[in-house]
Amino acid sequence: MFIDSSESRDRFGFGFIFSSEWDPVKEEFGALPFIYGTILSSIIALIISLPVSIGVAVFLSEIVHKSVKTPVSFLIEILAAIPSIIYGFWGIYVLAPFMRTTVQPMLQSVFGFLPFFKGQMFGTGLLTASVILAIMITPIISSITRDILNAIPVSQREAAYALGATKWEAIKMALLNARSGILGGSVLGLGRAIGETMAVTMVIGNKAQIKASLFEPAYSMASVIANEFAEASGSMHISSLIEIGLILFGVTFVINSLARLLIYSVTRNAS
């Protein structure tokens, strides 16, 4: 990949990352809008997913009885196994209309003074992509969090109860102890979101632009590769797409290594 992208690297250098021009016809290629779309959609996805994931993990490990726990964990496993093309498909025909008619108008009426929630509502766009991604990474983060919570000895919890803590206070303490593991899980989820292709491609709007409003269409690194690679016009175009792939690989590599390190260190401490 490094070799195959040499043409675009030679031509654009580091400017590739900072240029927001993307015009296959004029052979002007800059990756900024894609990097922006990828990072922003993934981070918003994480912001949405994290509290929910922790909630689910607590729900599964501390609150419910085994008879509920088993089927619910199974369903969450399935959630992680559904092909992303199906998420995308569902995203176009169910989630996007729902966002346009319900969620986005609601956000606009409450937070409309913020630039993020201004402007036209298309349904598809950055925010919708983030929501889909949030659904997709919740199983990852919640299962790691749950495993860590399960690893905390019962005696510790009982000690907390014995001192008169409420259930939530005991859980809060457990969560605080588990924080670096949860961080590891979140980073892993973030890596997954950044690399996710089909679902994002289908709902993000596919427009290489950087706009403040989250309702606007955007583009991601993976999506532009998915959309343009097979029909790329000329070797410079291909080479630029491969370079984007290389950046994508680099980013996910760093993020995943970080996540592994965090998770390894937690599991080592626990055992």
Binding site: S53, F59, E62, L75, L79, I86, Y87, W90, K167
Partner: peptide
Amino acid sequence: VTNSVMISLCVIAGVITILPLLYIFFYT
């Protein structure tokens, strides 16, 4: 009160995670 609120929030989190799955499943 905090206790009950937080516990309920966790239950809600459980429900809203399962919801899209069931929706996708039945819709498909």
